[in-house]
Design a protein around this nucleic acid. Structure first.
Lengths: 114, 114
DNA sequence: CCGATACTTGAACGTTTCTTCAACTGTTCA
DNA sequence: TGAACAGTTGAAGAAACGTTCAAGTATCGG
């Protein structure tokens, strides 16, 4: 009776302390968000097969170059892909080893769905 | 010159054929979308530590019970968590082994970021 | 039965997201 | 130089998203 505190609140604080920091959680969410859009997921899958020019990606996905370019910018900002200028064209490639592993794991999950 | 086709288009079709089916890509994106919101990411992290009642989750995240409940519904629909009624309360737990592994992998990535 | 507790649900609202369109930059080559 | 090509960028509109608020259901204690 001496503590008079709310048991619930204390234990909530304890649990909260066990979670990754707010910053890490936000970064984590940002990372997964990249895979959470079908267009970006497709782009990343393409780049797993081989490096590609923007126009090639647009052809594969049957989308406008502009739409693809916008998504590439997002992926670039997230450091998941990088673009290298080759004359008139820009060749994109994966910029992160984790991409393959994370996608792989997600695919395993999706495919195992009963 | 006999084929007269566009090389680019053919190779694009070839690449397209190597990607997972449209359905799988969409499911994949749906899965990752679940991790792509900080609130849901936190809920999943909490539930990795232990099973929790809705009110407890709300206390940990310092959010309204309503907001938490809405997100739990989304996670339930994605089959990532399940809720079990215990009298007045509902205890939530992870409903999928992959959750832990996927989060773990994402965290590794985020923490390794130089 | 009545009130309190625990949670769910639906509607509303402000934000964010994604695509499209048009304009722009940079490179090649005739 | 200038036309064609490859890609980027900004603005705009539609759709999806997440939180809040208010109302609803279900369970327990008195």
């Amino acid at each position: 009776m001496a503590d008079g505190g709310k048991i619930n609140t204390d234990s909530a604080a304890a649990l909260r302390g066990m979670l990754p920091s707010e910053d890490v959680i936000y970064d984590l969410a940002e990372l997964f968000k990249m895979f959470g859009d079908p267009t970006r997921a497709k782009i990343l899958q393409c780049l797993q097969i081989r490096d590609l020019y923007v126009g090639e990606i647009a052809d594969v996905l049957e989308m406008s170059i502009s739409a693809v370019s916008h998504q590439l910018r997002v992926l670039r900002a997230a450091k998941l892909v990088k673009g290298t200028k080759e004359g008139k064209e820009v060749k994109y490639s994966l910029d992160d080893d984790h991409v393959t592993k994370i996608l792989e794991y997600g695919l395993t999950h999706v495919n195992e769905e009963k």
